[in-house]
Amino acid sequence: MTMTLAEWRTAIRPIADDIAAELLDAAECGPFDGGCLAFARALQDVIGGDLVVLTRANGLADHAAVHQGDRFWDYAGPRARLLFIRRFASAEMLGNWRGVDIRPHREGDLLDAPDDPELVERLAALLRGALAGHFPVQTLSLRS
């Protein structure tokens, strides 16, 4: 099932404060300043897909997201690949998107990002409730 950016914004709005509170309480960060990995893992638990990272020109991972279908997802919502890269570059790199790429997440990426399984599960529970009408609800965590 697909979801538009407008549908995402409508669905996420009622839980935005709760997501922020969970990330701030557990890790003193938000979904774009350190909490991207926990948020992406939670989102992956709910919508499926593959965990990916956006990399800078030097190849270092800078942001976690989910690749599901033909869209890339983070807290800002689903976007096609180029639009996703441009949104990231606009927000994080002063609009310079040259050299930014997307690749699968791998061991050693984003080591400073919180990745606590309990935090991920709390975020996933919030997302399951908000997205229940858009995606089949996962009853078990997809994390191993």
Rank of each mutant, 00 (worst) to 15 (best):
E121D: 13
A113C: 13
E22T: 05
D74V: 06
M93E: 13
G59L: 10
D17L: 08
P31G: 05
G35Y: 11
D33P: 01
G48P: 07
D62I: 03
E22A: 12
G30Y: 14
L5I: 06
F88D: 01
S141P: 02
F39A: 05
S90I: 00
D116P: 01
P117T: 06
L111Y: 00
H63V: 09
I47Q: 05
R13Q: 13
P114Y: 02
A89D: 03
D112E: 11
L51A: 01
R103M: 03
G99L: 01
A76D: 14
A124W: 12
A26C: 09
S144M: 09
M3N: 00
S90W: 00
Q68H: 14
F135L: 10
S144W: 09
S90Y: 00
Q138A: 15
H134C: 00
L43Y: 05
L119Y: 05
T10Q: 14
L54N: 04
A124N: 03
G35K: 10
A65F: 04
D50H: 13
L82F: 06
I85R: 12
I12V: 12
G133D: 11
F84S: 10
L94I: 06
R13S: 11
A26K: 03
L82A: 14
D17P: 01
L142Y: 02
A80R: 15
E118Q: 11
W73D: 05
R103A: 00
L5A: 08
G30N: 13
R79K: 15
R122N: 07
D116Y: 10
D109I: 12
L111W: 00
R79E: 09
L127H: 06
A16K: 13
R98S: 14
I47C: 07
G77N: 11
W8M: 00
L110K: 04
L123K: 05
G34A: 10
A26S: 12
L60N: 14
D115I: 02
L83M: 10
G49Y: 03
S90Q: 13
E28W: 04
D70Y: 12
R41L: 15
F88E: 01
G95D: 07
A80S: 10
A20I: 03
V120E: 01
G34N: 06
V66C: 11
L123C: 09
L82V: 13
L5N: 01
E7Q: 15
M93S: 06
A65C: 11
A27L: 08
L5H: 03
A124R: 07
H63L: 03
E28C: 11
A21L: 09
V46Y: 06
L127I: 01
G49R: 09
A16G: 05
G69P: 07
G49N: 06
D50G: 04
A20L: 12
E22S: 08
L24H: 09
G108S: 08
A21Q: 08
